[in-house]
């Protein structure tokens, strides 16, 4: 194999807290190929966002480092676009202007004004948001805003797309729809994607590879599962595909048997926002 596209070596991250330094990540090693779709999964607070932020360059690892195409990452940049957990759109700009801000910055020199305009529209259409181009984020639903956040990230033509629970706050239908669009877009553009998720089905359906993280503090890579399923994938036919079910159980076993987090499972049952997937998932896990 040639040199990896994206490589994390011996990444350690410690935060200074009032109670002394807190080691969140300990010795994370990862090699990711170009065009690979990788999901990060793990219990809340284990350090998934921290890994993503280090790849984004928003955080600097205290030990070890991160190399993209032969260059060390030490600052953020548009070639590593981030889809933030809660859309992070500028509330004073319209949907169009939010994407424009990114396009303007990245393609100021390489595109003409007309090209930029049609590129912004193209990306809004990709996520089905062209109809709301003139609306402000406050005037659209959370799911719509999240789609605009994805359009903004895609519009930067990133070589790596980083997504922090991009569909976490969405209802099941919207989420399914966006997952399908994301699969299509990713197949077409062949971006490398790192996505954080809490949803086991989402991880298996979308990923080429699932990185399961151990519980923090000092979290590390627990298991590294390759998902060898044909693309394009169809959620309905896969639902009772034995390989799919097997992968799903692998992840569930890791989360609820090997990395069981007793204190966090009980309150999660009552937590409706993130809890729905977990509830659904624990049932087959118990059977297995």
């Amino acid at each position: 194999m040639s040199k990896p596209h994206l490589e994390l070596t011996g990444v350690e991250m410690s935060f200074d807290t009032p109670k002394g330094s807190f080691i969140a990540l300990d010795n994370i090693n990862l090699k990711i190929k170009k065009g690979e779709f990788v999901s990060l999964i793990g219990h809340s607070g284990c350090g998934k966002s921290t890994v993503l932020n280090i790849v984004a360059g928003l955080l600097q690892a205290t030990k070890g480092g991160c190399i993209l195409d032969g260059h060390e990452i030490n600052s953020p940049g548009p070639e590593r676009a981030v889809v933030f957990q809660n859309h992070a759109l500028m509330p004073w700009l319209t949907v169009y202007e939010n994407v424009e801000l990114a396009v303007q910055q990245v393609f100021r020199k390489s595109m003409t004004k007309q090209e930029r305009q049609s590129w912004i529209h193209h990306n809004l259409e990709l996520v089905n948001m062209a109809h709301a181009a003139t609306k402000r984020p406050g005037e659209i639903s959370g799911g719509m805003a999240q789609r605009v956040g994805i359009a903004r990230a895609l519009a930067m033509k990133p070589s790596v797309l980083l997504m922090d629970e991009p569909f976490g706050a969405l209802d099941a239908l919207t989420r399914a729809h966006l997952q399908d669009s994301l699969m299509e877009i990713q197949q077409e553009l062949n971006n490398t994607v790192i996505m954080i998720t809490h949803d086991v089905d989402e991880a298996v359906l979308l990923s080429d590879r699932i990185i399961m993280m151990t519980n923090g503090p000092a979290a590390a890579v627990g298991e590294d599962l390759y998902i060898d399923l044909e693309r394009p994938r169809n959620r309905v036919t896969l639902a009772d595909d034995p390989t799919y079910v097997h992968y799903r159980q692998e992840v569930l076993k890791f989360l609820y048997e090997k990395q069981r987090k007793l204190e966090s499972i009980t309150p999660r049952r009552n937590n409706q926002t993130t809890g729905t997937n977990m509830q659904k998932d624990t049932a087959p896990a118990a059977k297995a």
Partner: peptide, 17 residues
């Protein structure tokens, strides 16, 4: 909002922008 600051950093906006 720190998220918006992060967006600005990812976009590498100049200080003035």
């Amino acid at each position: 909002n720190p998220d918006l600051l992060n967006v600005s950093r990812v976009l590498r906006l100049s200080f003035w922008t």
